[in-house]
Design a protein around this nucleic acid. Structure first.
Length: 477
DNA sequence: TGAAATGTTGGGGCG
DNA sequence: ACGCCCCAACATTTC
């Protein structure tokens, strides 16, 4: 007599290696790997276009990997609870396993599903592998939630020590009777699931994630100096893979910290990178403790901030037509690849919020739709940080100068040249401020300002003063 | 995970 | 030689 099968409900843990949920199900015996397309899971933050594209690709990869081990992925469509119950009865499964999700709305959803399953006698097992530090457990000395990164980071370093990653199970045994399934290729055509296209730029899936980490390990020594340079390609680009759980964060941490201990010359870069992983943890931590921050500023005084209602400027920003080359390059990189270098995200976000006074929530929505690594926790943290209204935020008066940021972090202008071809012939000295360039330089570069490339949508030094004035207004009360 | 304004210092030109 | 000024370079303060 065989042990009943277990269903593995895959969500944002689309990998076979170092996946405790999948491993536990496999150890029991036969498994039914399932993905459920339910487009209304998260009412306020339904998956954006870039994210839909990534997901459809990643599921294809997961299906391929499962098939190479004798299994396959079952794609269901509809309400999760009902679909899981149907799948259990079709396959004789008595248990459903999944990896915990931490976005408040999704984790509430999962609790409802759990109740529904348990009410019909199914067993539910929940595993955690999405985070290294359990947000519910970490508190500061006064017993409340951290609001400042550095003490949170120090606390993380105390408790994080991931085990070596476990390889994927070699064989996946399916039960004798199986549930019905859509094909993974059909997902892109489901209603409410609207993918964009970034095929040239990425390899979604576990294999692509492993390629990225091994490439990063080879260049990590340069990360300390080069991570702020969008013109170089020395960041890990792991963010979408981590978001979808195509590689476990504990494996990433483990590999980088091993490198740090065996290669002195890479130590600084490795530490800087691990610190970035802690920012990811911090984002989830804050969202867990302050779930309303996806919509509203953590610092209440910012509710009164005099934001502008300016859809015209917002559209220029979205389309990379602000007249500030670094900002425009970033916004075009985002549109084309579904990703933007972190340093440029800061500059572009700062420009929207501080130079144009457009609410950070609008920027967050645009990023949410465009980013292949769109992640509610990290997106929220980043935008609130930039706007100055969040935890450990940049003080409001810290205003990025898009020209100086460009000259500092894209010194030769290669990043701008790549994404803003109108400026390709501008010399490095002027490429970040074509509006200040001598006429002769513009002529030689074939640039007709205002025609082939826009004049600045707003003058930065004027905008800076305006933002500071707006800030002093909310501060007085 | 800023930048601008303001302050200080020190070398060199020049009367 | 000396004092004065200019200003770059750096440091500090302020937003």
């Amino acid at each position: 007599m065989s042990i009943p099968a277990a269903i593995v409900w895959f969500r944002n843990d689309l990998r076979l290696a170092d996946n405790p949920t999948f491993a536990a199900a496999c150890e029991r015996g036969s498994v039914v790997p399932v993905f459920i397309v339910q487009t209304d899971e998260n009412k306020h933050w339904s998956r954006g276009g870039a994210s839909c594209w990534w997901l459809s690709q990643s599921l294809r990869s997961l299906d391929t990997d499962l098939r190479s081990r004798g299994g396959r992925l079952f794609v269901l469509k509809g309400g999760a609870g009902r679909k899981l119950i149907e799948a259990a009865s079709a396959s004789g499964a008595d248990t459903v396993c999944w990896t915990e999700r931490w976005e408040p709305e999704l984790s509430a959803f999962d609790r409802m599903v759990q109740d529904e399953l348990e009410s019909v006698g199914l067993r539910v097992e929940v595993f955690n592998s999405h985070l290294l530090a359990d947000p519910a457990r970490l508190v500061n000395l006064s017993g409340s939630a951290y609001r400042v990164f550095t003490p949170f980071y120090n606390a993380c370093l105390e408790i994080i020590s991931p085990a070596p990653p476990k390889p994927a199970p070699e064989v996946v045994r399916l039960p004798d009777s199986l549930p019905e399934s859509f094909s993974v290729d059909e997902i892109a055509s489901f209603s409410g699931f609207i993918p964009s296209n970034h095929t040239d730029c990425w390899t979604p899936g576990e294999k692509g994630a492993l390629e990225k980490i091994s490439k990063f390990i080879d260049s990590a020594a340069r990360y300390a100096d080069a991570r702020d340079r969008p013109d170089l390609d020395l960041t890990s680009r792991l963010s979408p893979h981590l978001h979808f759980g195509e590689i476990s964060v504990s494996q990433v941490w483990h590999e980088v910290s091993m490198l740090r201990s065996r290669d002195e010359s890479a130590a600084e870069g490795c530490s800087a990178f691990l610190r970035q992983l802690c920012w990811r943890e911090f984002g989830y931590y804050l969202l867990h403790h302050f779930p309303e921050t996806t919509e509203r500023p953590l610092r209440p005084e910012f509710e009164k901030f005099p934001w502008a209602d300016d859809s015209e400027s917002f559209n220029l920003w979205c389309n990379g037509l602000t007249g500030y080359p670094l900002v425009d390059a970033g916004m075009r990189e985002l549109k084309h690849t579904g990703w933007m270098h972190n340093r440029v995200r800061l500059a572009a976000a700062s420009f929207l919020v501080k130079d144009l006074l457009i609410p950070w929530q609008q920027g967050a929505r645009w990023f949410w739709d465009m980013l292949v690594d769109a992640d509610l926790a990290n997106n929220t943290l980043g935008w609130q940080w930039t706007a100055g209204c969040g935890a450990d935020a940049a003080p409001y008066f810290r205003i990025f100068n898009p020209v100086l940021q460009g000259m500092k972090f894209d010194p030769d202008g290669d990043y701008v040249r790549r994404w803003v071809p109108e400026l390709a012939r501008m010399p490095a000295e002027w490429i970040h401020r074509p509006f200040d360039a001598p006429l002769s330089v513009l002529m030689d570069s074939g640039l007709d300002l205002g025609k082939t490339y826009p004049m600045p949508v707003v003058d930065h030094s004027f905008a800076r003063e305006r933002a500071l004035a707006a800030f002093s207004r909310i501060r007085q009360r």
